[in-house]
């Protein structure tokens, strides 16, 4: 009786989870297969899990336009690295000050930080300030600075980590030895904070890697196109497939594999994430669960 119940639940749980897992995965498989489908076959029969004819034409097209795609990759990497590094630095420094007991005006700073989670000026005001006061339009800064660089939530997360996981006696001892606050921060606090920095760094890095909204708002002219990340190239192709043609080396009028090349470019956007994911999964899951507590 009991083992029957047990068996029933094993079948139900594995069955349902199996189906949901497959549903999560299948679209990506279709995307990859579509990118390897022969263009003419795809136009006649549509994208398919079982294409009648394979081809690497789409990737050949990408190779021929390595300048555009390569530049997109470079931009994505640059923005992600600089943004994430800046984010970890700003967040940890700010959190360290907030974690200091009895810091005069500490409570006010803390409140000002939390208040940003409750109230915002809205997208229009934010856009106006960044573009008309700080002039980030059509620069790398437009991709890096607005919204993504630091958020109050991470500051509080790191602050709580400092308070609970870094022994105050350690800091006291260093102080007695005559270490300055800055060297304590660099030599003791940062090395002890690797777990929390990895967690927030990964979530921030993913946000930068996947971001396209900043580009949508701040890279609007022709001049801004050279700062396009992979996501922004994909977004532009979505708007008009002609973008692929206009920015490629191919002489206008010559046909190019529009249906499969767009899928191939999308594949280049997901591959890096899929490669690092298995190694960093632990931190992703951690990032989600610590985030949920106070989100």
């Amino acid at each position: 009786m009991k083992s029957k119940d047990e068996l029933k639940w094993q079948i139900i749980s594995n069955g349902v989870m199996g189906i949901v897992s497959l549903a999560a995965l299948l679209p990506f498989i279709l995307l990859i297969i579509a990118s390897f489908t022969d263009e003419k076959w795809a136009l006649a029969n549509g994208y398919s899990f079982f294409p009648g004819k394979f081809s690497t034409e789409a990737y050949g097209y990408i190779m021929n336009n390595a300048a555009m795609i390569g530049r997109g990759y470079l931009n994505t990497l640059l923005v992600t690295l600089i943004g994430t590094a800046g984010s970890i630095l700003f967040t940890s420094l700010f959190a360290y000050a907030l974690a200091k007991d009895n810091l005069p005006f500490g409570r006010i700073l803390n409140f000002l930080c939390i208040f940003t989670m409750l109230f915002s000026g809205g997208q229009v005001a934010s856009y106006y300030i960044w573009s008309n006061v700080f002039h980030v339009r059509d620069t790398y800064l437009g991709l890096i600075l607005p919204n993504l660089m630091m958020n109050a939530f991470n500051v509080i997360l790191v602050k709580n980590y400092y308070k609970t996981s870094i022994p105050a006696s350690l800091l006291e001892a260093a102080k007695v030895d005559g270490a300055s606050e800055f060297s304590i921060f660099v030599r003791i606090v940062m090395p002890l904070s690797i777990p929390i920095n990895a967690t927030i760094g990964l979530m921030t890095g993913l946000a930068y890697w996947n971001d396209w909204i900043n580009g949508l708002y701040y890279l609007t002219s022709r001049k801004g196109e050279r700062f396009y990340t992979i996501q922004l190239i994909l977004n532009r192709i979505n708007d008009s497939i002609a973008f692929l043609q206009s920015s490629s080396n191919i002489v206008t009028g010559v046909s190019f594999p529009a249906a499969t090349a767009r899928m191939a470019i999308a594949v280049t956007g997901i591959i890096p994430v899929l490669i690092v994911y298995p190694f960093l999964q632990k931190y992703f899951v951690k990032g989600i669960t610590v985030g949920a507590v106070k989100e």
Partner: peptide, 10 residues
């Protein structure tokens, strides 16, 4: 820059 100035931008 990112949060308080936009609040006045309201």
């Amino acid at each position: 820059c990112n949060n308080y100035m936009p609040m006045f931008g309201i």
